[in-house]
Amino acid sequence: MRKPLYGLMAEFATPEQLIEATEKVHSEGYRKVDAYSPLPIEELHHSMHLPDSKLPRFVFFGGLAGGLGGFGLLQWISQVAYPLNIGGRPLNSWVSFIPITFELTVLLAGLTTFATLIAMCGLPLPYHPVFNVPRFKLASSERFFLVIESEDPRFDLVRTREFLNTLHPHEVSEVES
């Protein structure tokens, strides 16, 4: 029995072709679409009409927690838990707390970025259907790919393939799920 189809994959030779294709795919009404590229392409964000990432919000609150936590920790240590007279300086020596506060802000912001990004990307992901297409390994080196998933309400094996062929791809292949 034939396995159900994950979608149709079009292969392009240049990033410009991929950007143009994603734009046309979007205006054609397809929404379950993903693009694969060996290098970051900033314009894809616009041509695919992706919403702005929510990542900065998480990072902001991670950094805020780090900063307040770091400063609070130092205040608690030096005023409550273990007050020490160091060279006659006040217990609230906020100037000398700046480096730790700064470091913890950066640390927690960084860790939040890492953890949130992993979670938002759905990693770890041991299996993905796109790798069933042998030529997809070129997505890591020199080729640009566009996949329209079969879940898309407008997906139709024959008509979608015809449409993808009008975008001048190098090749259109079926992706088994």
Binding site: V95, S96, I98, P99
Partner: peptide, 12 residues
């Protein structure tokens, strides 16, 4: 500015 402040404030 903070670098200068931390160094001078700490040395006093």
């Amino acid at each position: 500015n903070v670098s200068q402040l931390i160094i001078m404030w700490s040395a006093n």
